[in-house]
Nucleic acid binder design. Structure first.
Lengths: 166, 166
DNA sequence: CAGATTTAGTTGACAAAATCAACTAAATCT
DNA sequence: AGATTTAGTTGATTTTGTCAACTAAATCTG
């Protein structure tokens, strides 16, 4: 299992590389949207109430970072912000029609690319890939829940544990 | 297969998130090394002749970005740069002992984490995960070779196709 | 219910990391 | 030998994010 772990670390490095920023840049550079903005737009689309905290979590930034991302999305006409009616502290982010269209376009490009890759694989292999990768992601989530894995904890040994996320 | 592609895009998004920068930050923030520096150090270790172009490719930055990364690694005492003897234009980056040690430490932490995740999975599932993920990464590589996928091509429709990578 | 505390978000000052464009110098082509 | 290409560097700037201090709404507590 030691060697499996090693293999997996390297495989995931490769995947992260192939599908990370640089890949997204390929899809997005014409759209002029950063990875953080992309992720924020995604949660804004998928949740009917998307707070700054949600954006911070999803884009792995602090809450001030989330504010900045939301502002950029607003400036680009991709999302709107408005106060929540029930809790006045909360700022809801919702994608505009333009934002939805953009997200859709990027998504389709990613899907096309993935489709081509999958087409090169044996169908049976595809099936077990999906099954086992699902199991893996569940295991990751499980582990992070077990750890109480919030972003703040990562540098907890440092001087200033969580200055911006409290 | 359409739905498989969709699932896979989402699974990879999750993995990229879980093992991306924010994860590495967790491992590296005490070491004070960025993701780009980490990747650069990795190629420098894995190739016995690591050029700036290699770093640029691996960290997904322009060649000026690569210069800056190499300089930072040098400043931190993690790598050395020296002119190649055969081709005087080439600048070779090699990790120092300190760099090697650091890379090892980070690697071990990643391995530990991966080990814990894998431990939560069914052994048979682990096996097919490794097998199918290997097949997937091979398919990705295949496809990228087929596309002649170099970073410069990504924005080729823009005004200024590849200003810094020529 | 009033005052204290917590929670959600914003903002100014700043830092990190990358880009662009213009450059040097070595190698290669003609 | 001169022109071109290739590898890398550098100054000015941009992008993106952090930190710390702040506002304001909600909730707790006596």
């Amino acid at each position: 299992m030691e060697s499996q772990a090693r293999q997996l670390v390297s495989l995931i490095e490769n995947i992260t590389y192939a599908f990370g920023m640089q890949s997204l840049d390929g899809q997005c550079c014409n759209e002029n949207i950063s990875h953080g903005e992309f992720r924020a737009l995604q949660v804004a689309l998928n949740q009917n109430l998307c707070t700054m905290q949600d954006i911070a979590r999803s884009a792995a930034v602090t809450k001030s970072g989330a504010t900045r991302i939301a502002k950029r999305l607003e400036d680009k006409g991709l999302a709107n912000r408005q106060q929540d009616h029930k809790d006045g502290r909360i700022c809801c982010v919702t994608p505009t029609e333009k934002g939805r269209t953009l997200l859709n376009r990027i998504d389709n490009q990613l899907m096309d690319r993935m489709g081509e890759i999958l087409a090169a694989m044996d169908p049976a292999m595809r099936d077990i890939l999906i099954i086992s990768l699902n199991a893996f992601v569940r295991a990751v989530e499980q582990k992070e829940i077990g750890d109480g894995h919030e972003r703040e904890t990562c540098c907890a040994m440092g001087v200033n544990p969580f200055p911006d996320n409290g």
